[in-house]
Amino acid sequence: MFGQQLLEGLGAGAGYAALALALVLTYRFTGIVNFAQGELAMLATYVAWQLVVSGMPYWVALPVTVALAFAAGVLTERLVIRRLESGAGEVTLVVTTIGLYVLVNALATLVWTAALRAFPSPFPDSPPGLAALAAAGVAGAVLGALALVVRRTGLGLVMRAVAADARSARLSGVRVGRVLALGWGAAAAVGALSGVLLAPTLFLEPSMMTGVLVYAFAAATLGGFDSALGAVAGGLAVGVTETLAGTYLGFVGADLKIAVPLVIVVAVLLLRPQGLFGSAPVERA
């Protein structure tokens, strides 16, 4: 029983980890906390659903969706974020992503209505614990591949340089604009992965990712907003904590479950603002 709870927690945690990683990616590259990350993931999930319902096999629809999400992320950076970068205050940047949040949410409602839908599970015949584990495995493989690209390739090298110091990267001849677009594309793709992984457990509806976003914030804060590894570790931790708290702490009912990540966020920010794996001051200079 405990084992199954643990597996479920890890499965959910993998979804949170992916969205948290998406948040960390956009933050590291452009210094923006993207409140719209969850909604972009939700949009991608609807696209995946649409593809599957129209007959595409699940395991084809998934990479197609991720690729489309990548393209959408690149477009967002080019059209919206790039225009913003010079001279916008921090509040404006965040509120812009909030504007995107509202816009994307309304758009999804317009196209697909607010009706609840079931999302097909990739492993329909397995017990839920095993399905969760498999989902976590898929996520792990993708994130692992991503990590390899970042650590070992020239492209990854350049991305890390831009994340560390964009101006010096520019002076070293790096096409920083392209790297940023790539970063947002990767973030959107990872976010899409999160949505698709979590969709079988949540119902598919326009606000499905709102709660997940809060969990992802908690995960990213816990791990350290500038640490990719932290985001993943944080996501798993939050997933497990949430599931266990829901089962074993009586007073944490369904509607108070959302308090778990919020308490985590506030506690971390007050006690150790850089999170477990992050590096010192997380405020923008």
């Binding site: 919206v80 225009r83 913003l84 916008a88 404006t92 509120v95 812009t96 909030i98 504007g99 995107l100 949040y101 509202v102 816009l103 994307v104 949410n105 309304a106 758009l107 409602t109 317009l110």
Partner: peptide
């Protein structure tokens, strides 16, 4: 919802074009 769509777009438009 329609109103939200419009003002979400308005926020982005204002930030980009009408600081």
């Amino acid at each position: 919802e329609a109103a939200r769509l419009l003002y979400g777009a308005a926020v982005v438009a204002v930030v980009l074009f009408l600081p």
